[in-house]
């Protein structure tokens, strides 16, 4: 157990170094505003992919509605900032709570479904969330919600992301996460081991939804406006692709997937049509040649390089 904590410590130290370097690049204006923005978007997308991985990768419950929970967090945060002048941290926490509650309410009935049926039901629910938001005039309806303060800076995005990554990493390495993985591997056997499968599925879905809400709140405070069209099922696909690309069941993979796809997308942003065609080809090629994703279910912390780093354990 203490060796686990040592690995944690190492990972935190490395993260702080990464933060310091990036923050230095930003403060010294070595990165132009476009990339400064994209680094924040990468952090947000990492939160989305890691939280989705908890549901799809670890628990094996195929959700295609993650963008809907992001929308809930985005609008909750925006309303608190604009209409109630709450501090940002209150917005983030409320975004988590609101998205988690709605995730739980949605999870309770839908987690009885499995496979493709669950996928299509979550897709539908995600769309319903979006359409409902689109019809609420209080939050700007189809025109979007404007005038949100730009509270998300790199430090916020990075440390919230770090918090979420550690939370979910520890989640999956506890009895909660083992219950999830047991459900993924064999639901009937999991029940026979005393795992209340409904409870743990709904819990994973709730926690995943809550963090998607947090990502949404960060997202809303990155740009001046949030718009329902940012949260269609196509963006849910996008987060799913990050998870699958990195490797279902690997947190390192989800981080890498979010990083790579966001970066590629930013690099090709001048050629929107070509970008998507290339993206599609890359995706298909990946499924042909590496269907388990870049990392499979391996974590970077279990690789020899990491162990050797700073003198091993």
């Amino acid at each position: 157990m203490s060796s686990l904590r040592k690995t944690d410590l190492k990972a935190i130290v490395i993260s702080l170094i990464v933060f310091a370097v990036l923050q230095g690049l930003i403060s010294s204006e070595a990165l132009d505003p476009f990339w400064q923005l994209n680094i924040i978007v990468i952090c947000i997308n990492i939160i989305m992919s890691v939280s989705l991985n908890l549901i799809n990768g670890y628990t094996g419950q195929f959700s295609l509605g993650h963008a809907g929970f992001m929308a809930i967090g985005a609008y909750t945060g925006a309303v608190l900032s604009v209409n109630f002048h709450m501090p940002f941290i209150v917005g983030l926490i409320t975004a988590f709570v609101t998205a988690a509650i709605i995730g739980c309410l949605i999870g309770l009935p839908t987690m009885r479904l499995s496979g493709d049926y669950l996928a299509i039901a979550t897709l539908g629910l995600g769309e319903i969330i979006r359409i409902v938001i689109m019809n609420v005039n209080y939050v700007g309806g189809a025109a979007g919600f404007m005038g949100i303060p730009k509270s998300t800076n790199f430090a916020w995005a990075f440390f919230v992301m770090l918090f979420v990554v550690f939370f979910i990493k520890n989640y999956v390495n506890s009895s909660f996460g083992r219950a999830c993985v047991a459900i993924r591997e064999n639901e009937i056997a999991a029940e026979a081991m005393g795992v209340n499968t409904t409870k743990y599925k709904v819990l994973a879905f709730t926690v995943g939804a809550g963090f998607a809400g947090v990502a949404g709140c960060l997202f809303a405070h990155t740009f001046y406006i949030v718009h329902p069209s940012s949260f269609t099922f196509l963006s849910s696909f996008n987060y799913l692709i990050m998870v699958v690309m990195g490797g279902m069941g690997s947190i390192t993979g989800s981080i890498a997937g979010a990083f790579i796809l966001t970066t590629i997308s930013a690099l090709l942003s001048d050629w929107p049509e070509l970008r998507m065609s290339i993206y599609a080809v890359v995706l298909i090629a990946l499924m042909f040649y590496r269907p388990q994703g870049l990392f499979g279910n391996i974590e970077i912390t279990s690789l020899p390089i990491f162990k050797r780093f700073k003198g091993g354990k």
């Binding site: 696909f237 799913l240 692709i241 699958v244 049509e273 070509l274 970008r275 998507m276 065609s277 993206y279 599609a280 080809v281 995706l283 298909i284 499924m287 042909f288």
Partner: peptide, 13 residues
């Protein structure tokens, strides 16, 4: 995922 890829490919090509 491949089907999603094919979908994007058809749309954007």
């Amino acid at each position: 995922i491949t089907a999603i890829g094919v979908s994007f490919f058809l749309e954007y090509t």
